[in-house]
């Protein structure tokens, strides 16, 4: 009895503590799951649309979500991951800033049991992310390359404007395009330069290239923003009528420009499909599914004047 009296306060504390833990556990079981949507940049409308679609799908599935903007900065992205994990987000729908630089963030999240579903951009580590849902940029640019060769009738001089050199999409697009175009010896690439997927930079880059190469026949750009910048440079140089511009993305202004005959073609990506698939995979993960394709390609469709009526910007349903 004396012993019980001595240890009574300790026993009460222990029971109280256990009760608290029980409450906390029950609370976490009952708490709705949350998805963090970490996006490389919200300065580009294409990524804004991707984030909005992921958020809409998460909501539709009954989950709370929050969008984090990495501003194309991997250290900011790391902060977002740390915050998301600390704040109890249960899954991360992720659009990486850098294929190599973002690996560590993905690994840190999955190491603590937070699944990561990459959207549109990949990380260069097989198996690091739970699943990567990506546009099949290579194949999309094979289709663009084929149309490019047909349109130029297998000969001419052209310029290639690349995206960010640290992004896999840049090279997948470039390699897909060249896998076709390089088979035609009379198609000569007179300049290849990066403009970081940026419209203004692309305009400046092409203006400068046109000083040295004034008689080009076409420009292939790694995204639509750069295609619009290239077109502006051609307008300023008085060459927009005969230099053919090709883009990639399916952005709003390029869809309109194809209708108007200013841009020849683009590769339509489907951010809706990627965002919805990522959110659906996260939902399935919460429900116990653990088998996901490591990479899930999303088909890219060639959009040109004769089929533009079928398409709206970003692959939206009409």
């Amino acid at each position: 009895m004396k012993l019980l009296n001595t240890y009574r306060p300790l026993l009460i504390c222990a029971l109280f503590g256990l009760g608290l833990i029980g409450c906390k556990t029950r609370q976490s079981e009952e708490e709705p799951k949350k998805m963090a949507i970490v996006v490389s940049t919200l300065n580009n409308p294409w990524f804004v649309f991707l984030a909005e679609q992921a958020q809409a799908k998460a909501k539709e599935l009954g989950y709370e979500s929050k969008v984090f903007d990495s501003q194309n900065n991997t250290s900011q992205e790391t902060d977002h991951f740390e915050n998301a994990i600390a704040s109890g987000y249960d899954a991360i729908l992720f659009n990486p800033t850098d294929a190599d630089g973002s690996i560590v963030n993905v690994k840190n999240a999955t190491a603590v049991g937070v699944p990561v579903f990459c959207m549109d951009r990949e990380v260069n580590a097989n198996g690091a992310a739970t699943s990567q849902i990506l546009s099949d940029s290579y194949s999309g640019c094979v289709a663009i390359g084929k149309y490019f060769v047909e349109t130029l009738n297998k000969k001419g001089k052209y310029v290639e404007i690349l995206g960010m050199v640290g992004d896999n999409n840049t090279w997948n697009r470039s390699k897909g395009f060249h896998s076709v175009v390089d088979q035609y010896a009379d198609l000569k690439m007179v300049a290849q330069q990066s403009a970081d997927f940026d419209r203004n930079k692309a305009m400046e880059v092409l203006e400068s290239i046109l000083q040295a190469q004034p008689d080009i026949d076409a420009v292939f750009c790694g995204n639509d923003a750069m295609a619009m910048g290239a077109y502006q440079a051609l307008v300023a140089a008085g060459k927009a009528d005969h230099v053919k511009v090709f883009g990639f993305d399916g952005a709003e202004d390029v869809v309109k420009s194809i209708q108007d005959g200013k841009i020849v073609a683009t590769g339509m990506q489907f951010p809706i499909v990627m965002a919805q698939t990522a959110a659906t995979f996260a939902d399935q993960y919460f429900k116990g599914e653990r088998k996901f394709p490591k990479k899930m390609p999303v088909a890219v469709e060639l959009v040109k004047r004769d089929n533009i009526k079928n398409y709206a910007a970003y692959g939206k349903e009409d």
């Binding site: 099949d136 489907f270 499909v273 899930m296 390609p297 999303v298 088909a299 469709e301």
Partner: peptide, 8 residues
């Protein structure tokens, strides 16, 4: 048949 998701 297709390996991708989408319309193709």
């Amino acid at each position: 048949k297709s390996m991708s998701i989408g319309n193709i």
